[in-house]
Amino acid sequence: MLWLHGEEGLDPQAPFLDLLAGTGRVVAPSHPGFGHSPESSTVDTVDDLAYLYLDLLAEQDRRDVIVIGASLGGWIAAEMAVRSTERIGGLVLVGALGIKVGDREARDIPDIFALHPDEVTRLQYRDPARFAVDYTKKSDDELAIIARNREATALYAWEPYFHNPKLPQRLHRVTVPTLFLWGADDRFVGAEYYGAAYRAAIPGSRLELVERAGHFPHLEQPEAVVERIRGFVQDRGA
């Protein structure tokens, strides 16, 4: 499995990764500019990230990989799949971004760069209080990671904002089994509007809700998300 994190960055301590690793071998890179990963002057778009990870799969000669991505990571996963599914066996898109659904005046995705950070947390988590960050309790290194994650997110997603206008017309190329997982309480991009439009663009895909979760279900309900992924992998085999 290839795990592609989103704006929240890759937290090696997060329960989700351990649980996921209980179901199979997981490769979980930290995207360039996130966490402690160096930036690259030649990598500044989601397009670059999609090719980076397709090259990674080729270099390691992986086959039948389940690519799983959340939010920004889901966008990267979708961009990979429209380019080539040669090494991809299935796609799990968790609250994935990457498309625009409404007209030019519809704010499909709230502008995290123009909202107060507390409001962003409120929109992205079912239980914001659990995920509010107390900066005074963080080390300099942890704070630097938060700053780098925000900066890298801006680099990749500033404009067009968290989407590729061309992606919807390319999603028909995704011919591998695809599962959308969506927080039932996602106030950031709702399952009924955004998730449903995304699902409709990928033939044969299905969408499942994760109860008691917001935009990052893998953080709020890691067990449930891993359970769904396990089920998806098994069904796919059958």
Binding site: A114, Y135, L143, A147, R150, A154
Partner: peptide
Amino acid sequence: VPPQFTSPPGYHPVTTMVNSMKG
């Protein structure tokens, strides 16, 4: 001016952002 406009991500160096989060 609220923080999202004074400190857009990437505008200030990371060390400045760390100091700012710590106050």
